[in-house]
């Protein structure tokens, strides 16, 4: 009897944990509410662009922030998802957008299996170079492949009807569709990070030889993380193609791989919300700069942010905020 009594009285640690969980849930709920009302406050297409890049950056962050793998070729997955979805939707009118996106995502997964298996054979700096080279290979493939429209890209991709009857031509319904896609992607990442699998990934990131000696099949863990990340990047690319109704070489260029690194670094590597914030800032910045006299200096300014981030701001915005929160409130 006594044992059940003590079991019912929650320990202080458990209570703290429960309160923290509740705070977190409230926080996520607030973010979702903001996401739901946002299209009434800002231009939906702009918001959709942010959401697509946020998902892209989150997928990249899963790899860098939690597995410690710096991929310099994530544009390849974004572009693959985009091109496959774009090609399917413009060539086969019978395909509904969700099927198109699903196949685009699977294309990202398939490419992730191949690239992942090749690139995890090398570590650290070599890993970055291998992924960059493989992405460049895809770039040349997209220039020459018959279904991508070469330098012009794919234009006029039909948004179609979600599930066959909800038209996505209206930007508002399109927005909620994209928001739902984003939430699914984010939930997958959140779940992955907080699962035992995610804990092993962190262990590998912190000390790979030790993870090996503990008996973990490190390569299998890395590969799975790579594939999940690639699939989600493909999902982001597919969705982006649907939003803008076009897929182009810009998405496959190494600049894009660099941009997603910047978004993640600026927001905070290894934080769940950092990449979203980073994507929001970078996309907004590009948007604002494009209209200002500084329009031609975008790449220089992004480069400067890169340098400043690395020199003095390595935890990113969310990371620094979390640090000061811990210092002042705990």
């Amino acid at each position: 009897m006594a044992t059940t009594e003590t079991a019912r009285i929650p320990s202080a640690a458990m209570q703290r944990q429960r309160r923290a969980n509740m705070r977190r849930n409230m926080f996520y709920l607030a973010l979702i509410v903001i996401g739901l009302v946002a299209p009434f406050l800002a231009y939906p297409v702009f918001l959709m662009k942010i959401l697509c890049f946020a998902l892209f950056a989150c997928s990249f962050n899963l790899l860098l922030g939690y597995a410690g793998l710096l991929s310099f070729g994530h544009a390849a997955f974004l572009a693959t998802g985009g091109y496959v979805t774009g090609y399917l939707l413009s060539s086969y009118p019978g395909i509904t957008p969700e099927v198109g996106i699903l196949i685009g995502t699977l294309a990202g997964v398939a490419l992730g299996v191949v690239f992942g298996a090749l690139s995890i054979r090398r570590q650290g700096i070599y890993f970055a170079m291998v992924t960059l080279a493989l992405a460049q290979l895809m770039f040349f493939f997209f220039i020459q492949a018959p279904f991508t429209g070469g330098e012009d890209g794919l234009h006029g991709v039909v948004r179609g009807h979600f599930l066959g009857f909800i038209s996505l031509d209206d930007n508002l319904s399109m927005y909620y569709f994209v928001f739902a896609v984003f939430l699914i992607g984010f939930a997958i990442i959140q779940r992955t990070v907080h699962s035992p699998f995610g804990q092993v990934l962190k262990a590998i990131r912190e000390n790979e030889p030790r993870a090996v000696s503990l008996g973990y099949n490190v390569d299998a863990y890395k590969l799975l993380a790579f594939v999940i990340s690639a699939g989600l990047a493909g999902l982001a690319g597919s969705t982006k193609t649907l939003v803008f109704q076009l897929a182009s070489l810009t998405d496959a260029h190494w600049h894009m791989s660099g941009e997603v690194i910047l978004m993640t670094l600026l927001g905070g590597v290894g934080t769940l919300l950092g990449p979203i914030m980073g994507a929001g800032i970078v996309v907004s910045l590009q948007h604002l700069l494009a209209q200002s006299p500084l329009g031609n200096w975008v790449s220089v300014i992004l480069g400067l942010i890169f340098v400043v981030c690395v020199l003095s701001f390595r935890s990113g915005i969310v990371g620094e905020l979390a640090k000061s929160y811990r210092k002042n409130f705990k």
Binding site: L70, G124, I125, A128, G258, I261, L265, N296, W297, V298, S299, V300, L302, G303, L304, I305, F306, V307, C309, V310, L311, R314
Partner: peptide, 23 residues
């Protein structure tokens, strides 16, 4: 620091040099 930061920093520098000359 971790050597990956060196890669990122030099990448930022490359963007700056290239972007400036493009202008």
């Amino acid at each position: 620091l971790d050597h990956l930061y060196g890669l990122l920093l030099t990448f930022g520098l490359a963007l700056i040099f290239e972007g400036t000359l493009v202008n």
